[in-house]
Each structure stands twice: as structure tokens, then as C-alpha cells.
Amino acid sequence: MAVTGAVMVLFLVAHMIGNLKIFLGHDSFNEYAHALRTLGEPILPYRTLLTITEIVLVASVGLHMWAAISLSRRAAHARPVKYVAKKSQAGGYTTHIMRWGGVTIVLFVIYHLLDLTFGVVNPKGFDSEPADRMVAGFDPSRWWVTLIYAVAVVMVGLHLRHGIWSAFQTLGWAKRNRYHVLRVTAAAVSVVLVLGFLAPPLAITFGVVK
């Protein structure tokens, strides 16, 4: 969970920075999208690095889900008889929504790919400039799309607040005197990612970016 999660967090940071290019104009955003495909050229053929990244990401998502499902199954086997009364003592809201939060995020990612990558559920369709798809997708008339994205992004933030800290613990790099720093860092990274991902859709819906 820790290693595949780390791969996805690094991807999210790059993805967020790329999204913010929309604030520099449609051309800047389209050039960035094109650059992703021509990265490494002319030494590497068209789309080589992007395809490798996609394969690594799909593998990470798959292994992350496999690990989560096997942990859930082991947990169910380890406690066949449930408690009549059970009260959480650790006070970690985010730790208790990891599994269903993860399911929510997967469903969102499927919708998100159909919307902005493949254009299936996007008004502009597949044969359009990336920036046009993005601006049309978050048009004020489609406010509910923005709402879905906002909820999903907040869910990702909550997932990461536990996930980032937890990854350090799983890999054995956490120590009592570093817990505070790790927790604050995890929260800070989550907040930055949430704000960075929320900014473009909200700016488009509210007409700041056209």
C-alpha cells in the first residue's frame, strides 16, 4: 500500500501542477498536454514516457486495490463475531473512511477519465483541444460536475491525510519524535493538493477562467 500509494502521490503532485497551467491560458495548457506526449523526443518515440507512466500508474492502482482488498478480507476473517458495542479511541476520522473513500475515488477516476481524457461524457467529445474540454466540462451550466469533482478531491485529501503518514509507518521510517512532523506534513500535502485541484474547476465554473 505504501509504495504504490507513494507512486500515486507523486503523480498527483505533477498532475496538479499541470492543471494549474490553465491559469496561464488555453495555449499554455494545450502545449503542456502536447509536451507530455513528446517528452523525451527525439531520443524516444512519440508518447514513450507517457505510456510508461500510464502503465506504472495502472499497475499501482491495481496493486493498491489488491492490497486493500486482501487487508479487508484478512480483517473480516480475524473478527467473525462483531462487537455489540464498539467505540473508537484513536479519534482518527480519516482512518475509518480509507476503504469506502478508496472505492469512491476509484469510481470518480473512472468518471474523470471518461470526461476529460476520452471525452465520452464531455460536451466537446474526444476530438478537441484539452483546454476546450476542460473549460466546457466545468461550464457553469454543468455545476453538478464541478460539485462531483469537489467532493472527490476532498475525499482524496482525506485519504492522503492518513495515507501519507501511514506509508512512513509501514515502511518503518516513523519514530515517535517524528510523528508530529509526519502528521503535519501529511496534512499540509493533502491541503495543498486539494486546493491545487479545486482551483481550476472552481475558477472555470465561476467564470474566472474562460
Partner: peptide
């Protein structure tokens, strides 16, 4: 047949001896 750790911290919260959670990080490292 015990389950796997997901770092929820429920264990250390109820431990009558207050065994700290970073013992698990030590175990993972080893």
C-alpha cells in the same frame, strides 16, 4: 489468522501499558 495493520492507532490508545505505535514501525523496518 490475525489481521494486517493499517496504522489506525486504536491499539496504542487502549494499551494499558501505553506501548507506543512506533514499535510497529520498528517491527516493519526489521
Amino acid at each position: 489468522g490475525f489481521g494486517g495493520c493499517t496504522n489506525t492507532g486504536e491499539c496504542t490508545a487502549v494499551c494499558p501499558k501505553g506501548i507506543p505505535l512506533d514499535a510497529i514501525a520498528q517491527m516493519n523496518s526489521d
